Each structure stands twice: as C-alpha cells, then as structure tokens.
Simulated assay, not measured.
Amino acid sequence: MAGHIQKRGKDSYLLVYPMGYDQNGKRIRKTKTVKAKNQTEAKKQLAAFVTEVETGSYVAPSHTRFADYVKLWRKDAAKKVAPKTIETYDYVLNKRIVVALGHFKMEDISHVHITDLIESLASNGLSSATIQKHYNVLSSIFKLAVRNEMIQKNPMEKVDKPSVTYKAGNVYNSDELRQLFQILNEEENKQMALMIKMALKTGMRKGELLALQWDDIDFDKNTIHVRHSLSYTKLNGYQLKEPKTKKSIRKVAPPSQLMDELKSHKQIKKTDRNNAVELWDGGNHFFVFSTDLGKPFFPGVPNTWLTRFFKRTGLKRIRFHDLRHTAATDLINKGANIHSISNRLGHSNIGTTMNIYGHYLEEADQKIAAMLEDDYI
C-alpha cells in the first residue's frame, strides 16, 4: 500500500504519502498528523488518507484562524451585497461570532462549536430572525472556505437552520386608530403626521416612505409607485436602492383624502425648493419627505419623532414598523382579501403574510362565524 506511518508520540501518528519528485529533484509528499490508539487504527486512517490524496479531496490544514479568514470573506462579500448589508454583517460578526470562534483554526471548527453558538444566541434572548442572520453569515463563510480549499468539509452541513417565527408586533385596534387619526389631523408638524398616515393607509415600509419622490405619485390615476428604498451607511451616506424583494416594487392606491393631503404637501415642498435656490440639498431628487432644503431624512428621524409624539399625546406607544402591521390588521378587520393584502404590503409570497397575520385572520373568521349565528334566530 502506498504511504507509511510514523509514530510521533502517545496516540499520535504521522501519515506520509510520497508523490515522487519535483523538477528540482526535491521530494514531494503529503502528510497528516492523526490520533490513533494503535498502529492498526493508524493504518486504517492511512488508507483513508491515501484515498483522499489520490482522489484530490484532501485539503491540507491551513492553520488560518477564523478571525483572519473572516477578513478575506468580507472582501468577497462586499463585491456582492449592498453596503448596508455589509454593516449588518460587521455587527453580527464583531458582536458575537468572532468573539466565540475567532481564536479557532478553520479546520478545527466543528458543527458542535457552531451549534453551541446558535443555542447561546437563543438563550440570550435574540429574536429568531437575528439568529438566522448569524446562521446565514456563518454558512456563507464556510461555503467560501470549502470553495477555496481552506477546509475539506463544511461544518454547517450538520447544523440545523434556525426557523424564523414572525411576530405581528403591537398594533392599534379600530378605536385606537380612529383616535390616532384625530390627533394626527391636529398635529402642527404636518409633514411627519402625513408620513405616519401614509404608513397606516398604504402599509409602506419606513425605507420606502423615505425614498418616495414626487415622480412616484400619480395623482391622475390615484396611485403610488413603490420602487425604491432609502438606506444610510457611514461609509457611503444615503443610497437609493430597490426595495426588499422583487414583489416590493408595486403600486398602491391610497384613500382620496390622503392624496388631497399629498397635493397640499407638494405645494409646500415646491415653495421650499424655490426658496432654497442654490442651498437646495436634494440634488436631482425631489423627495416627498425631506428637510426644508430637500435632503432626505436620516432613517432614525421618524422613529424619534414618533416616540416623542406618543409621549406628548399619551397614546399607546408602538414602533414605526408596527404602523405597517396596523395597516395590515386594519385591512383584515375590514374584510380585505389576503392576496390583496399580501400584494399591497409587497410580501415575496402569500406564505409570509399568513405567517405574520394568520392569527388575526383566525380572529376575523370567528367574527364572521358570530355574524352567521343571526340566521338561527
């Protein structure tokens, strides 16, 4: 049999596979250090090692540490994903993953290490969606490592992918929603009040609202064309990109009263632009929601304003994203078709809508059942 073994220490053997000589007459050989109870077991490992070498599946240990390889992976990822996504990757990596695995050599990381890390994330109270982000990053790293022949086997193959449990969040019921609109109608900051109304009546995401431009609004056809989302990174500043999914590019029909408010708001924005003259900071863009000088709002601005608004008015506090959930549940309560709701929200498929709002649909169906009881009176 090709190859031989050399005892290196207690339960340690060096597997050697000679491969002839190079052009300079230097001997070529592949080696691998293994743990074995005795020579018989070591010879079995030698046979497997020879097979790996001869079939080209053997990958020599690189001794590269995980923390160092992550830097190489990040350069590769930066060519394929948006800057905002890279920022998210950096946070996920630096906060927990590199802390837990950074000191390991790539070939020494097993599925056990990764499973322990995933389980620790759950025990620390991270959401299922956040845990899945950690899984996806790890999966991408080790896939590239296998492709680059840094490791032979991908440890992620034995790690169960975490499932995402959707939460509908806190929403306003019909009475609370009616009260909210009454207070918004009296709000001095008409622009921010209009943004909140837009979120509640169109179900648009915050990034989609911030990216909205006047060219996206067709007053004649009473439609809003959602085709961009606004993001911000420290490295690249503001960026307009396509929305979350392909189905997120959509047309939404708002109530006529909301369109009337948008017409009035447009006149104010035109005045702002005319008054700004050379100080106009919107460039070639004309955003629906912006500063007086046309610059788009920083993504945190609507959140901060909404928090202060709830504190000032005493209304039930919800997150900005919960305005979107409220929009969906309000449509369910009004008897809207689930397919129409899914399309209006720009979900990638109806399954996503069902996962998030399934229990609200069940509640609405129970109300219908109660109405049908009248036939038996």
Rank of each mutant, 00 (worst) to 15 (best):
K197Q: 14
H265G: 03
I196R: 03
H347P: 10
E373M: 09
E54F: 07
V53L: 06
T223E: 11
V112Q: 12
E373H: 12
L258P: 01
A60F: 08
A211M: 06
V164L: 03
P83W: 01
K30I: 10
R96D: 11
N136M: 13
L235F: 08
H113L: 06
F104N: 09
A328D: 01
L177W: 04
G102L: 04
L372Y: 08
L258A: 02
R27L: 04
P299I: 01
T51W: 07
G125L: 03
P243D: 14
I268R: 10
E107C: 03
V53W: 00
K190C: 02
D330L: 07
A364D: 07
F320K: 00
L15Y: 00
H113F: 08
P155V: 03
K80L: 11
T115V: 09
N355R: 09
Q182M: 13
D116Y: 07
M354L: 15
T85L: 06
L126K: 09
R205Q: 03
R324S: 00
D292T: 12
E54P: 00
V16I: 15
D108S: 11
Y13T: 04
M150H: 07
D11M: 12
S290L: 02
M150Y: 14
E362S: 09
Q366Y: 08
L46T: 02
G207C: 05
A168Q: 15
P243G: 05
K241Q: 07
N284G: 09
L315V: 14
K251S: 12
Y17R: 09
I332W: 06
F142R: 08
H134R: 06
G207I: 00
I196Q: 02
E373I: 12
G56V: 10
W214F: 05
N185I: 04
G25M: 02
E208M: 06
V70I: 11
P254A: 09
S229I: 03
A199N: 00
N38I: 13
L293G: 06
K206Q: 13
I249F: 03
L46N: 01
L262I: 05
M19T: 13
L138K: 12
W73D: 04
I377Q: 09
Y91S: 11
K316G: 07
H359R: 10
M106K: 10
Y135F: 14
I341R: 10
V99L: 10
P302W: 00
L258T: 03
Y238V: 05
M150I: 15
Y69F: 12
I318T: 09
D215L: 07
R27K: 15
S163H: 08
I131S: 02
S256R: 11
K316F: 12
E149C: 08
Q239V: 03
V53C: 14
H228V: 10
L361E: 00
Y166G: 01
R96K: 12
K79V: 06
N303G: 01
D68E: 13
K7P: 03
F286H: 14
D90V: 05
Y360E: 02
E176Q: 07
